[in-house]
Amino acid sequence: MRKYKDVTMAFLRAGVLGFGGGAVCLPLIQREAVNTYGWITDDEFGELVAISNTLPGPINTKLAGYIGYRVAGVVGATIAVCATIVPSVVMLVFLLEVLANVREHPIVAGMTGAIVPVVGMMMALMTWQILTSAAKEIKGVLVGVNVAVVAFLIAMFDLHPAIIVASTIVFALLKPEPKQKTLKEGVD
């Protein structure tokens, strides 16, 4: 019983305090799982995050579910995921319902209107960050070409984004791995 309560509290706290998306939540989850409850070590946590990034889907729920599973099996995973997502989802549903009733009021309309460009700026910064991190991992020119091709495909053919993403994933998996040529030639 005790471990269920611990899992609930840990992920409730990490979820409710995690303003600002995944990156903010990671240190909160780490603090709970490593420091407060000692379920896993710091190194394991780093490994978990790295591996979560190689899988699709939201990172917080993958972490919560996996840690919950390690601590208390399937029930633990379920509890951890629910504690992570339910409070914020319920809050948002209520907020949107309230908004729907008062959105005509000029003050409310002003407030919701004003967040739109702020979210736009957050996305601009996120886009920039994704592009720069991609340019660090593959050649910058390739990133540029890739961006141009994707933009062209979507603008000209209205191609479904999921198709582009899925074919990119297939390409990444099928493309032959670079042989250890560089290693053999001693180029580090």
Binding site: N53, T54, G113, V116, P117, V119, G120, M123, A124, M126, T127, I130, L131, S133, A134, E137, I138, V143, N146, V147, V150, A151, I154, P161, I164, V165, T168, I169, F171, A172, L173, K175, E177, P178
Partner: peptide, 30 residues
């Protein structure tokens, strides 16, 4: 393994384009 590592890397440019498009809609609406 490079295969596993590059999965998320290869998807990045596409995601950037898509996010960029929403950002433009966002600004136009505003």
């Amino acid at each position: 393994s490079p295969r596993v590592k590059r999965l998320s890397t290869y998807v990045k440019p596409t995601i950037a384009v898509l996010l960029g498009m929403i950002m433009i809609q966002n600004v136009t609406i505003s």
